[in-house]
């Protein structure tokens, strides 16, 4: 069974604002090709103020699709259209305390339904601008299309390139066969062949100028400084271990498995490097998801 948060389950079992909305003046019908789910979002917009007075949904889809639809209607009720357009799929996922990486597309579908409904209200034509491929990297929720496009656009040729440009393959590494297949395919188009180059082994930890204790204290101080910000988004971060130049952290709550996790971590990593005066790598462990998985009956 999927690793659904309590919030997802609650919105699935007791969906808010479900069912047709008779006097809707904005309707968005969208579907996700990757799983066949589909959603109709109906809004009642006050023409005077362009405020969403009522939002209802009907969804043909799985638990997280229904929960995402329910969350979306709760988020946008009372919003002005221009503000509603700023609601991202991440906002929907965050509202639900996160979604499993395979299910992030459900939140994308929610955002698209919202855009389609607003376009419908304004008499515009809405078309989708992104293509979704098969999920390759489950650690960072990165699909085949993104990897292939990035490899092609940047002339990448090694696994390490792909990890550096997309983060795909940078976690548990079990998707490397799939990434190599993409590399081999794109390289073949360029008339080259894929040669496996071992991903550079971790450098042996060199003692820095700081003592171990000082280093760890500084790392903890940096993490403490970002925690309030993460907690505002229903997430949190904890230090798990420091091994040479690698700092292992556990992302919990909404941060665990969040698509923005990579960006969040990059920011914290930059802060750490600044503070420590050395290159370090910040690596999320899956301890957060593990804790949630084991806490379930």
């Amino acid at each position: 069974m999927w690793d659904y948060s309590d919030k997802v389950k609650e919105h699935f079992f007791q969906p808010r604002n479900a069912g047709p909305l008779a006097d809707a003046n904005a309707v968005g019908d969208v579907g996700s090709i990757s799983c066949g789910d589909a959603l109709r979002l109906m809004l009642k917009v006050d023409p005077e103020t362009e405020t969403i007075q009522q939002a209802q949904f009907q969804t043909f889809g799985c638990g997280s699709a229904i929960a995402s639809s329910s969350a979306l209607t709760e988020i946008i009720k009372g919003m002005k259209l221009d503000d509603a357009l700023k609601v991202s799929n991440q906002d929907i996922a965050d509202y639900l305390d996160g979604l499993p990486p395979e299910k992030m597309h459900c939140s994308v579908m929610g955002r698209e339904a919202l855009q389609a409904a607003i376009a419908n209200y304004r008499g515009e034509e809405w078309s989708d601008d992104h293509e979704e491929g098969a999920l390759i990297c489950k650690c960072f929720a990165i699909d085949a299309v993104l990897i292939e496009d990035t490899v092609r656009a940047n002339n990448l040729s090694t696994m390490e390139d792909v990890i550096n440009y997309t983060k795909a393959g940078g976690g548990c590494a079990s998707c490397h066969e799939g990434i190599e297949e993409i590399l081999a395919k794109v390289l073949a188009e360029r008339g080259e062949s894929f040669k496996p180059v071992p991903v550079k082994a971790k450098e042996a930890p060199k003692p820095g100028k700081l003592t171990n204790l000082e280093r760890i204290r500084r790392i903890e101080a940096v993490l403490e400084s970002v925690r309030p910000q993460l907690q505002r988004d229903h997430g949190d971060i904890e230090l798990v271990d420091v091994d040479g130049k690698t700092v292992y952290v556990s992302m919990t709550g909404a941060c665990a498995g969040c698509q923005m996790e990579a960006l969040t971590l990059q920011g914290i990593q930059a802060k750490l490097m600044e503070e420590l005066g050395e290159l370090v790598k910040l690596v999320p462990t899956r301890a957060g998801s593990l804790a949630r998985a084991t806490s379930q009956p």
Partner: peptide
């Protein structure tokens, strides 16, 4: 199928 024909992405 006609009453509900979503735009697939």
């Amino acid at each position: 199928e006609k009453d509900f024909a979503p735009v697939y992405a």
